[in-house]
Design a protein around this nucleic acid. Structure first.
Lengths: 196, 196, 196, 196
DNA sequence: GATGAATGAGCCTTCATTCAT
DNA sequence: CATGAATGAAGGCTCATTCAT
């Protein structure tokens, strides 16, 4: 699959794998180097410091991790709204099931954010953007008349909280009916949902 | 208040504060020793190794962090159920607002859990116990007739997911109407809640 | 001679010897440690960093290297002035002959001063203090009537320049009649010296 | 002026500038390469090793730094001797004022000489040649009858010591009346100088 | 002529840990 | 109870150097 990968990509991939396994601080350049099969200083040919390598990972991870990558608002219609919201959400947290290193690394960053102001700011904005994404989507649903106009913000935030944490619980391997939980959450924000 | 704290407690407290600030790996025994004002080897008098100190912290933290510490099911009645569920929940995540070291340390453990099987098991069980706590509480609500008998498990998990993540978002300093979100979540699981 | 020297002193001495031989940058903590016969981190028990060790050496060296350590103005009289000035000077640069590490280290600092502003300031003040020392001494000679009142400052500076550089040349092992040169220099500043 | 300088010269010039600023050991090939705007291995095309590059600089520096470059004995006459000696000397150490990299590099070499026998020998001979230059010049003055025949060697060495150290003090930025000092020194060796 | 890629050696520093006292 | 003194292992990083292209 990746016979002749270039060194830089190999470093990045190894870094992902190792950070997912041992954490940001628990992963040393030596470990990365030996995983890639190169010498330690070789890493410095591609990244000026460990910090910049980590920054690079940060960007890679979060450039793919934005609301519109999972929920494309322009494909939502009056007819498919609820269904679409459900399937998009499922698609989102199912990714966690496959346990990709990238997702664990996201968690590393979330945690380290509390200690590194540099990441904190960026991360906060990413999460806020997620919240705003849900808000925009629900507002659109209100426009379409499929969602009650009340409490749009609170509902959006609720959905965000649930879907985000579903991923966290999945990583820990806690068993719950993820799909049903999400369906119920979505249903709760829909106008005159089938619950009644 | 803590004039003559014994050394062991001082170590534990310093460890909490520092781990909250610098993370598990970012906190060294030197830092703890100098924070307490003792010599490094002194720590070894009380804890055979850093790992065992951390284990001790783990137990302290999670012995206080169980469902019934926040939600005392036996104080719930037909009349106060919803209100009580709301106020208990608010009390739970408001603790995060005060940014207590203990809570940040909980997060450290949650994260390191993914890397240390030893913690993973314990942590999983703690979280599952939380889930079960909500299940038991809601079941009791069903018994009391204030909660619909449908989807108890899903509803319980939804509440758990929301309240847990409200804390996470608070730590990051993301602004949302925490109380309203929780109220809505609770209201959604109540039978014939005021929303309708 | 120094069978049971304490570790700190041993480190300092080794540092002197090695810096004299290999220069400031050419001397590593490993070298010092192995010269002393201890492990590298042991040095950190006594000095928080290489830089602070070097600073310490700087102070040791220059605390002994001030004008009054060689020329005690209060012992100069009308009668012994010239003789005393000569012998004190000889005593000064004869020290260089024994090639003590400390003196070579002085030279290292003088050189590194051009690159490290921190040392530059201190060093400049030390040298200026030397210049002022000669000025004060010659002024005293004027008072005593053994030195012409003309050009005191220039004469003082000339003496300083000569005596300082005599040491430099000695270190390089260049052969010259050091004593005679100094005698002549002193004689030149004396009033009605025997030369005429 | 140096639009299309060839690479070798660019390397040499960059090396001079950087060594003047950071010292011999403090200057790495990477620094030189990036200053010149070439790749590190490119330097190896012109110089087989850092050591040989340094050797080359050594020769460049000291090929220009010899007595006759500053004092052209054949232009000295009975009439202009003193004046000429003064102006030539001033010209010599005024070069230090402009802080040319080459001069700082000279100092680097002087210092490293104490550590590298290879340079020590060469440097010693250069300095001795300076001493001999002054001796020859003063001998010529004796021939011309403008300088007393006594103590020629000592006088020559005194002049050398003073003029050399004037440069050193200048580099450190110590303020003194450089010109006057040199004038006095010259005057002291002249026969029946105006001092009397 | 010059470079991209890589390396072994070595540097300063920190860490968890030990042990005699 | 507690410390002073010390250590092996490891971490991030830089350096001079090499070599195929």
């Amino acid at each position: 699959m990746k016979k002749k990968m270039n060194t830089q990509d190999a470093i990045v991939e190894a870094a992902f794998t190792l950070i997912a396994r041992h954490g940001l601080k628990g992963t040393s350049l030596s470990m990365i180097a030996s995983e890639v099969g190169i010498s330690k200083p070789a890493i410095y040919y591609y990244f000026p410091s460990k910090e910049e390598l980590v920054d690079y990972l940060f960007h890679i991870v979060f450039d793919d991790h934005h609301f519109s990558a999972y929920f494309s608002i322009n494909e939502y219609t009056k007819e498919n709204f609820e269904k679409r919201l459900i399937t998009d959400g499922v698609r989102y947290f199912e990714e966690y099931k496959h346990n990709s290193p990238a997702l664990k690394v996201v968690h590393e960053f979330v945690l380290s954010a509390a200690q590194k102001p540099k990441y904190e700011k960026k991360l906060k904005s990413i999460m806020e953007q997620f919240l705003e994404g849900f808000e925009a989507l629900l507002s659109y649903g209100v426009e379409l008349g499929v969602i009650s106009s009340k409490n749009t913000k609170v509902n959006a935030h609720s959905l965000a909280l649930i879907i985000d944490n579903l991923g966290n619980f999945m990583i820990l391997g806690i068993e719950m009916d993820y799909k049903k939980i999400w369906e119920t959450a979505v249903s709760n924000v829909m106008k005159g949902s089938e619950r009644f």
